[in-house]
Amino acid sequence: MSEERTIDLNEGKNELGKIEIAPEVIEVIAGLAASEVEGVHSLRGNFAAGVVERLGRKNHGKGVKVELGEQGVSVDLSVTLQYGVSVPEVAKDIQTNIEQALQTMTSIAIEAINIHVLGIHFEVPEEESH
């Protein structure tokens, strides 16, 4: 029996009850926020995520790993960027966008947002038919 870990938003109970967020929700928010940044080609997931996506289900948390720490959550994001962009600038934009999205939507404490650039995508020009 594995205990599902959740993030407790109000450190206990309020007058109405407890509020908890599953790490998968954080993964989806971070994945969507990262994919909005110009220069990001794709997020990289594991083999299982690729199979699920090929079967028709969009996996918005792919390439995102969330760990619950003592100071807050740590987000690790694996991306492929477009050729020609400034890698440090795009990575910083990704961090900023994820931070803003998580603060706006969940108000959780963020310990770290780590960006792992795994590749560069080169646009292959389509051959013109004559």
Rank of each mutant, 00 (worst) to 15 (best):
I29Q: 08
A22N: 14
I21V: 15
P23F: 10
E20H: 06
F47G: 00
I19W: 11
V66M: 08
R44K: 12
N14A: 11
Q82S: 06
L43F: 11
I98N: 07
V40I: 13
K58I: 01
L77I: 15
K92W: 11
V64D: 06
V52L: 13
G69E: 13
I19R: 05
G31A: 02
N97V: 04
E11W: 08
K62V: 04
K18Q: 12
T96F: 11
H60M: 08
E67D: 09
H60T: 10
V52F: 11
H60S: 09
G17D: 04
K62R: 15
V64L: 06
V37T: 08
L16D: 02
T80Y: 15
T96N: 12
I21D: 04
Q71Y: 11
K62Y: 06
T96D: 07
L68A: 04
K13T: 13
D93M: 06
K13N: 15
S74P: 05
E20P: 00
D93Y: 03
A48E: 11
E89I: 10
E38S: 15
G61Q: 02
H60Q: 11
G50H: 09
E89F: 08
Q82A: 05
I98Q: 05
N46K: 15
N46F: 10
H60W: 10
S86C: 01
R44E: 14
V75P: 13
E11N: 13
Q71V: 11
G39K: 05
E70N: 07
E67T: 14
T96W: 01
G69Y: 04
L55W: 01
V87R: 03
G31E: 00
N14C: 11
H60K: 06
K92R: 13
S78L: 10
A91D: 05
I19D: 06
L55A: 12
K65R: 15
A49G: 06
V51S: 01
G56W: 09
V85P: 00
H41V: 10
Q82G: 01
E70Q: 14
A49K: 06
I19T: 12
A49D: 14
G61P: 04
A22Y: 05
V25R: 10
Y83M: 08
G50S: 05
I19Y: 12
A33T: 02
I21H: 09
Y83H: 13
N97R: 07
A33L: 04
Q82I: 12
L55T: 00
Y83R: 11
I26P: 07
L43H: 10
A34S: 14
E24S: 07
